[in-house]
Computed example of a mutant assay.
Amino acid sequence: MAYATHHNLELMSFDIKTAFIHAGLSTEIYTKQILGHPLTNSSSVLRLLRALYGLWQSIYEFYMLLWKVLVSLGLTHCKVDHGVFFGRWTSRPHANISMPADGTDLILIIPVHVDDGLAATNSIPLYTWFFTKL
């Protein structure tokens, strides 16, 4: 926030609803049947196909999905803090986005904590484009 204030960047926050459900599971995880909805064989277990809130693996799976999406949009993760992504564009990533009037590059910094994020940018159209793609 201090960096954003010092460089006169706009700040926006976002929450990714049902974030974990968007992420598949790369490992096999099984669970007991839900009470009240047993299969014909009550000793059967169910294999989860999607990450769910409460699973330790879910946070990792969602992060890997988010990482792939953010990198595909031109952002890089910070080597010191893997929860921070940043992008700098010397040309417009989309026709609807204009370059800053002062001649500087387009900047987007995204710190993420689980499924909540903060965006610091010098271009509201860049943030809108990012959020639409996200």
Rank of each mutant, 00 (worst) to 15 (best):
A119I: 15
L118A: 11
L25N: 02
H77R: 11
G54Y: 11
F14A: 08
P93V: 07
S43I: 09
T90W: 09
H6E: 11
I97A: 01
M12S: 12
T18F: 03
P93A: 06
D105E: 14
N41W: 01
I29K: 02
S44E: 13
H113A: 09
V84P: 00
L70T: 11
L66A: 11
L55C: 03
V71E: 12
W129F: 13
L106M: 13
H77N: 12
W129Y: 14
A101S: 14
L55H: 04
L73Q: 09
V84E: 00
F86Q: 08
H37F: 10
I34T: 11
F85A: 00
T5Q: 11
Y127G: 02
Y30Q: 12
I110Q: 04
Y53H: 07
G54R: 09
T40M: 02
F20V: 00
E10P: 02
L55T: 03
F62Q: 00
E10C: 10
I110V: 15
I21L: 11
H113P: 05
H37S: 08
Y63K: 12
T121S: 15
L126C: 03
E61C: 11
L70V: 12
T104R: 14
I21D: 04
L75G: 06
L9D: 04
S42R: 11
E28V: 14
M64E: 14
G24T: 06
W56E: 06
I110F: 08
T18Y: 04
A51L: 05
T90P: 04
L55A: 02
M99P: 03
Y127R: 10
I16T: 07
P111M: 00
D105L: 06
S58E: 06
I109V: 15
D102K: 04
L52A: 02
F14D: 02
A19K: 00
G24F: 01
L39K: 05
L46H: 11
M12Y: 15
F86V: 07
G117A: 12
L70M: 14
S98C: 07
V45Q: 14
K68C: 14
L55S: 02
S91Y: 15
W129M: 03
